[in-house]
Amino acid sequence: MDLSRRLRRISRYWFLLPALVIYGMFMIYPMFHSFMISLHDWNGLAPEMTFVGLRNYVDFVKDPISARVLRNNLVWMGFSLVFPVTFGLLLAIAVNRDMAGKTLYRSIYYSPAVLPMISVGIIWAWIYNPMFGALNAILREMGLGRLTRGWLADPKTALYAVIATGIWKGTGFPMILFLAGLQDIPAELYESAQIDGAGRFQIFRHITVPLLRETFVIVISLVVVDSLKVFDLIYSMTWGGPGRATQVLSTWMYFNTFIYNKAGYGSAIAWVLTAVSLILVFPYIRAMSRR
């Protein structure tokens, strides 16, 4: 064995070292810690902790509310995969060209992402307000008065109303990733395709989309995970209500951990969330990474 060659090979790994150290201390260790908590019955503060094995996980599977919580996450995911991704891509392509006001349009489409949650919660609650909301006013103007309602108060519409806000807020994020991805496509490809007489849609299908493959992998993975982790919007707009109609995994985890003081159960939900994200995302990324 050639020692110096081996040393050289190991020394290459300093690239990974800073990330591994910081990540190990401030992410892997807390994850491990929370896994230990998930095996206990604990109120989150008192010195006593009771080991209960996997009971918290069994309880989660047994509790009928869990199914609704998961369903809400999946609905969220479905809408997020369609709308913010499509809108983000279309807007990115539209503002990728050299045109007047490019910066302004790009900034406007990204601006919802910039607005802090505290304002988003207030303004959208006003828009959906049953008494003086903008949405109801618009519907009445359009002669659709019978559709007016308390959009967040009706269990049938509450989740979708929050999702609509999520689409508004969530389009800027894929848009900038797609904008970055579009820069990797050589202009020559478009030029030669045009010379070959390809139509605009053909160019989109056969050049833009395939060459954005890595960007799609990133965007779709992130949208899937973000849909499972969605917290802020639900927390600030409906607080999981009415009843429990809009509870999702992360708010349900939060309620259990910090409001019901069931730290063990809450940590178990957190691990379910982490596991589900990995199960959905990792095989997908791996499959897409094989060439």
Partner: peptide, 26 residues
Amino acid sequence: RDTLFLMFLAGIGVPLHVTLLPNSIL
């Protein structure tokens, strides 16, 4: 490589709230 990538990826699924207590102790 894949193991390391999986490990880094796992972090995107972790809800922030469960890391707060261990990290503040640390």
